[in-house]
């Protein structure tokens, strides 16, 4: 089984509540670490303009490129739900490794931060909250109710199979576990 996200981009106002909720819940002080990020996209010429946002974390890909790229096998994928896990005791750190995982990921999901030889961090899908039958903190934070979350096959049944929005290309190689409702 593979857990994933549905993101209703038509609702997203780019308010960053999900990003801050993530930083607070996971106590991430280093603002260069973006376990979840907002990607704004402005298109067109005045006055025919378009603006959309994508809220993105690790997509917990079906065939993760980061896992393959890691020279010390610090990255694994849980059998029961497909969540990506990084073992920070094994990860070499950004100064001793060339951050192959970050380079391999089509979505820049692996995060290292600014401190010396910091280890890779990844969206955990709030595994601690899942254990208490709660949604990931970003999902419950969204003032626009733009997220849904669960087994990706069920999400596809419920919302369809739109895999791309402008600014996000579905990697056929890694198969990210996210589907969308586009704004445009």
């Amino acid at each position: 089984m593979q857990i994933g996200f549905y993101f209703d981009q038509s609702r997203c106002t780019g308010c960053y509540a999900c990003v801050i909720a993530c930083r607070d819940w996971h106590d991430i002080k280093d603002t260069s670490i973006e376990l979840r990020k907002i990607i704004p996209l402005e298109q067109g010429k005045y006055p025919d303009v378009k603006l959309s946002y994508i809220s993105l974390s690790c997509n917990h890909c079906k065939t993760p490129a980061c896992k393959e790229a890691c020279p010390v096998e610090a990255i694994s994928k849980r059998d029961e739900n497909g969540i990506m896990v990084v073992d920070q005791n094994v990860c070499l750190g950004k100064d001793r490794c060339k951050m192959f995982c970050k380079e391999a990921c089509p979505y820049d999901a692996p995060q290292f931060g600014e401190t010396e030889n910091s280890k890779m961090q990844l969206c955990t899908l709030c595994t601690d909250r899942l254990a208490e039958n709660k949604n990931p903190v970003c999902v419950d934070a969204c003032p626009m109710r733009a997220f849904d979350f669960g087994p990706i096959d069920e999400l596809k049944k419920k919302y369809g199979e739109i895999k791309e929005v402008p600014g996000f290309v579905h990697s056929k190689q890694t198969e990210p576990s996210i589907i969308f409702k586009p704004r445009y």
Binding site: C15, A17, V19, I20, A21, D24, A141, P143
Partner: peptide, 12 residues
């Protein structure tokens, strides 16, 4: 009554 980014950042 879901809070915005500013409320969520209040600990800081």
């Amino acid at each position: 009554l879901r809070a915005c980014a500013r409320g969520r950042a209040y600990r800081q």
